[in-house]
């Protein structure tokens, strides 16, 4: 009997699940998404690359000429790079849909514009 009452109770409510690709919930404030480099602030010290636990960040060159390559497929989204960066050049964005069929498109490059 209890089960019938329970069933009727839930029949009158909205579904708990969200129809994902059509409905999206915004991630909460402080969500650790994909890191993005602001190359105007980057000084090319290489700390993010050395401190990254999974080796997802590669720095090519030094100082002003440095180029950053970020391999999203290896990224843990731990936010340590952003925390370590002394100049706030790394920000964590809100996007979380990184799955792709091809690994080559999962590399983000950042270059300083001159």
């Amino acid at each position: 009997m209890a089960i019938i009452a329970e069933a009727i109770k839930w029949l009158l409510k909205h579904p708990v699940t969200i129809k994902y690709p059509f409905e999206r919930e915004a991630p909460p404030k402080g969500f650790r998404g994909r890191p993005v480099w602001d190359m105007h602030r980057c000084i090319g010290c290489g700390l993010c690359s050395r401190i990254c636990p999974s080796g997802a960040i590669e720095i090519i060159g030094r100082g002003q000429e440095a180029k950053i390559k970020h391999y999203v497929d290896r990224c843990l989204f731990c936010g340590q790079c952003s925390e370590s960066c002394p100049r706030n050049a790394i920000k964590l964005m809100n996007d979380f849909e990184h799955a792709r069929y091809n690994r080559d498109v999962m590399i983000y490059e950042y270059k300083r514009e001159t």
Binding site: I43, G44, C45, G46, L47, S49, R50, I51, I59, R62, G63, P86
Partner: peptide
């Protein structure tokens, strides 16, 4: 130098 390539802070 274990952690940084270059830093002048």
């Amino acid at each position: 130098a274990d952690f940084m390539d270059f830093c002048s802070i």
